[in-house]
Design a protein around this nucleic acid. Structure first.
Lengths: 215, 215
DNA sequence: GCAGCGGGTGGCACAGTGTGTCAACCGCGG
DNA sequence: CCGCGGTTGACACACTGTGCCACCCGCTGC
């Protein structure tokens, strides 16, 4: 009932007041992804069925589908957290800041996640699996595109607040955010082409310096 | 070669040397897509199964799969022709031309295809279906991303020929082509948002004027 | 305690996708 | 006339994702 939006007794514990139900769900999700990624890395993505994952996670196939509605979600589900952070960061940028600069700062969360993935042991092969499996790559791009759409509305709202709104059929705001996200993907590709050694941040900076909105 | 052997009767005006087998295959493919798009538009994409398409096209499900290995291919298959044209046009652009200008001209083939789709009643709703169905949108973006990769190599080769090559781990060339293709997608979205009335060309121009490489 | 109640779970069935396999067929040249 | 490569249709199969229902288990109010 009032469990969902309470925060009434959070004075003692400073950790976010996520309900117990939600926490156990997150824990199970984490167990599933860990078991699944082990299978993906050693047997390949296509060769690993939801039945295998369910068996490895110690649950029925039906229950597994209640945690991840799609096999692709098992791989890409955790990405939603990152994109949400990016969008939240974009919304909290100062209103007067240039859009290109706001976008660049918003990407810090994504960059940090990719850097962490590069250094961590198990997540690096997973990144390779995502980019080398056509179906996963397609879903990955679609998630990026959803970020693009959400970022566009943020940019439009900001222009509305500034008194210089864009027409609904003007492609400019979307083109700007699409170019920015294209810079991130370009940086990711260059990062992999270069052996994934240096940080992605410098590559994103270089890409976003070479391309940008015309003032 | 094969002309010398036979072709007894009417061999005066030979059509372009596509084999007969290939031509009949194209014709059947066209029939299938026409029947399928009719179903997609009136019943929706998700509600139309491969069985329905096979029945409407007058063939078995198994045979249909020999023409389109995926249901998404029934919708997106013809797109490969357009992207090939775009890449061919890009390769034939003069070497000294600015990259952004070359990209813009290369998109003419894609724009012409979309405009033709807009005027001939049936294909405009198809574009809307593509962009509004998650699975199709994902596959569509993946195809665009493949164009992006191919265009990047063209740009890199051109820079090599000009004596100013890019480092393999420099994201700049990919960022430029990604921004350009992002402009096309932004123009498509704006085109649909505005009721798909005006030509896309002016929208692409506006997007590519608002965004671009920094000189 | 006990009866309920509600959410998580598993089993089952089902439609649909995409693939392998095999027999039948058809056009064409020997 | 017979063969022969290519196409088709039919069946079987593994897998995905979903709906449905019975079950279990912790919790609450009586």
């Amino acid at each position: 009932m009032e469990r969902s939006a309470d925060s009434s007794t959070d004075s003692t514990t400073d950790q976010p007041r996520t309900g117990l139900r939600e926490r156990t769900r997150r824990a199970v999700q984490k167990e599933i992804t860990e078991a699944a990624e082990r299978l993906f890395v050693e047997r390949g993505y296509e060769a690993t069925t939801m039945g295998h994952i369910a068996e490895a996670a110690g649950m029925s196939r039906r229950t597994l589908y209640r945690y991840f509605s799609t096999r692709e979600d098992v791989v890409l589900g955790k990405l939603d957290v990152v994109t949400d952070e990016v969008l939240a960061a974009l919304r909290e940028r100062p209103a007067g800041e240039a859009v290109w600069v706001s976008l660049r700062h918003s990407f810090d969360a994504m960059i940090a996640h990719l850097d962490a993935a590069g250094s961590s042991g198990l997540a690096a092969p997973m990144q390779r699996i995502i980019l080398e499996t056509p179906g996963l790559r397609a879903r990955y791009l679609e998630k990026i595109e959803r970020v693009e759409a959400a970022a566009e509305t943020v940019v439009r709202e900001r222009a509305d607040a500034a008194g210089t709104p864009w027409a609904v059929d003007d492609p400019t705001p979307r083109a700007v955010v699409a170019a920015a996200l294209g810079c991130v993907l370009a940086a990711e590709h260059a990062w992999l082409a270069g052996g994934a050694t240096e940080t992605i941040a410098v590559l994103v900076d270089r890409a976003m310096a070479a391309v940008g909105p015309r003032d």
